[in-house]
Nucleic acid binder design. Structure first.
Length: 443
RNA sequence: GUGGUAGUAGCUCAGUUGGUUAGAGCACUGGUUUGUGGUACCAGGGGCCGGGGGUUCAAGUCCCCUCUAUCACCCCA
């Protein structure tokens, strides 16, 4: 315990943990590429102002920030959306649309660490810019599901809860609540799942007064709906003016197209309509979703594995041209924990292809030349770094997980050969030194 | 940032009402073993008992502070 430890909320990645992390990176990258997303990257350090612009000054308390030697207020990025908006916004008129980009990066946040939530985590982000229709939402949602499936998770491991802030906004508008009031009410609905009913009613009081119990009953009905038909019935019964009626009908048609496309893409088994999800962040404008792990009984466990949605006005609000956008983020901490818990983390043994057994000083340079030849050909080759007895070397060869042992002893040197042993089958063969590469290739 | 619980070897833990020089298993290193395997046997290295202060003849053990982890809040990438 002496000496130094990691800063709180940070992690050292020993080879096994590093291999697991890189496994996630690989899965994320390959999934994004299959969907035609291009990788981009942004700086780790950003001007403080860029980050407060989006989230307000309160976020400063949750940032690693300081003044640099040039007197600039800077901060480690807590997320990449503002930087991404800058990149996209700066080139808004010259980038070919739809813009489909992804990134894997370390993000930082100064807050009390907890399980599944550290001060540094890696996050996979994928976004589509420049396409306002639900086709972009569909692509994002499908990518999110396919990415999780590519990690090895299955039908009974997770569920994507799909909601729609646009429907909520229209619903609240029909009840006479718009703008700030609507956002405040959505904030309460976001917490509804975790709060006792009395607390929820109390929070609703400012907007609904004595009608709050009726409103809550309506909300409960809405969030329990799991079928599109149910949504249609619910919103069909809402009393509203003609303009609102038209918006609601158009939105429900968008839902229909979205669900059809998701079905065609094969991901509908994971999609659960659930208007209980509204996302805490105020900038979401349309479809929003969160992915949760589920246990054997279908109950949600832990924090969200991923979350995202549409944010059509954020780029504009940051001072760039208006640009519709939809995206999601997925962190390494929760996902890694889940894979380990469910036994879905693949064994990531970094075994060499060949382990060289070296007789004595006279054989050593022969063995090392062979090592060089094999390594140059792309094989992973190891040998003992110091003189070790034969018996011990075979033990090491077995422990290393290597497929082949190549034996360079006195007898072999005399015959101008090496002995090639298959460590699984135990079969051995002598090969002339000049045949070694071919023999290894065939073995 | 607020509250609950915990901290002994790299890991999992034992350590009696406070009482000699702090233990086990696993892991690691070496040996048995200079020509054939992950076994077995033997040996070894490794601990400011999280840190600091206090009580006591005596503290891993009791008290206070602090750090760290974890859980619940707050908040959310």
């Amino acid at each position: 315990m002496a000496g130094f430890e990691c800063l709180p909320g940070f992690r050292d990645f020993y080879p096994e943990a590093c291999a697991q992390r890189n496994f996630l990176f690989r899965v994320w990258t390959l999934a994004a590429r299959r969907f035609g997303f291009q990788e981009y990257d942004i700086p780790t350090l950003e001007p403080l102002e860029l980050l407060t612009e989006k989230s307000g000054p309160e976020i400063v308390e949750q940032l690693f920030h300081f003044t640099d030697k040039g007197g600039r207020e800077v901060a480690l990025r807590p997320e990449l959306t503002p930087s991404l908006a800058r990149m996209v916004g700066s080139q808004a008129n010259s980038l070919k649309r739809p813009i489909k980009w992804f990134n894997i990066a370390e993000n930082f946040r100064y807050e009390k660490p907890q399980k599944g939530r550290l001060r540094s985590h890696y996050q996979f982000n994928a976004d589509v810019f420049g396409e306002p229709g639900e086709g972009a939402d569909c692509e994002i949602i499908a990518l999110c599901v396919e990415t999780l499936l590519a990690t090895g998770l299955g039908a009974k491991d997770f569920r994507l809860r799909l909601s729609d802030r646009s429907l909520w906004i229209d619903f609240l508008a029909a009840l006479g609540h718009e703008g700030e009031a609507a956002l405040g009410i959505l904030g309460v609905i976001d917490k509804m799942e975790r709060l006792p009913q009395e607390a929820v009613l109390e929070k609703l009081e400012p907007w609904f007064g004595d009608a709050r119990e009726d409103f809550l009953a309506q909300v409960k009905t809405l969030v329990s709906i799991r079928e599109l038909e149910g949504l249609k019935r619910f919103f069909g019964s809402i009393v509203s003016n003609a303009a609102l009626r038209e918006r609601l009908d158009a939105r429900l048609e968008s839902w229909e197209r979205l669900l059809n496309d998701l079905d065609a893409l094969g991901v509908s088994p994971w999609i659960h309509i659930d208007l209980g999800i509204v996302r805490g962040l105020a900038y979401y404008t349309g479809y929003v979703f969160e992915v949760f792990a589920i246990d054997g009984g279908g109950n949600y466990v832990g924090r969200a594995l991923a979350g995202g949605g549409r944010y059509d006005h954020l780029v504009g609000r940051l001072g760039f041209p208006e640009m519709p956008a939809v995206g999601f983020g997925m962190g390494d901490v929760m996902l890694g924990q889940l894979l380990l818990e469910r036994g879905k983390m693949p064994p990531l043994i970094d075994a060499p292809d060949c382990f060289l057994v070296v007789g004595g000083p006279a054989e050593r340079s022969i063995a090392l030349k062979a090592a060089q030849t094999l390594r140059a050909a792309g094989y992973r080759v190891e040998y003992p770094l110091k003189p070790v007895g034969f018996g011990k070397q075979f033990k090491l060869a077995g422990q290393s997980g290597a497929r082949l042992a190549l034996i360079f002893g006195e007898e072999e040197r005399a015959a101008g050969t090496a002995k090639l042993r298959n460590l699984q089958s135990g079969e051995e063969q002598s090969v002339a030194m000049e045949q070694l590469l071919d023999a290894v290739a065939e073995a």
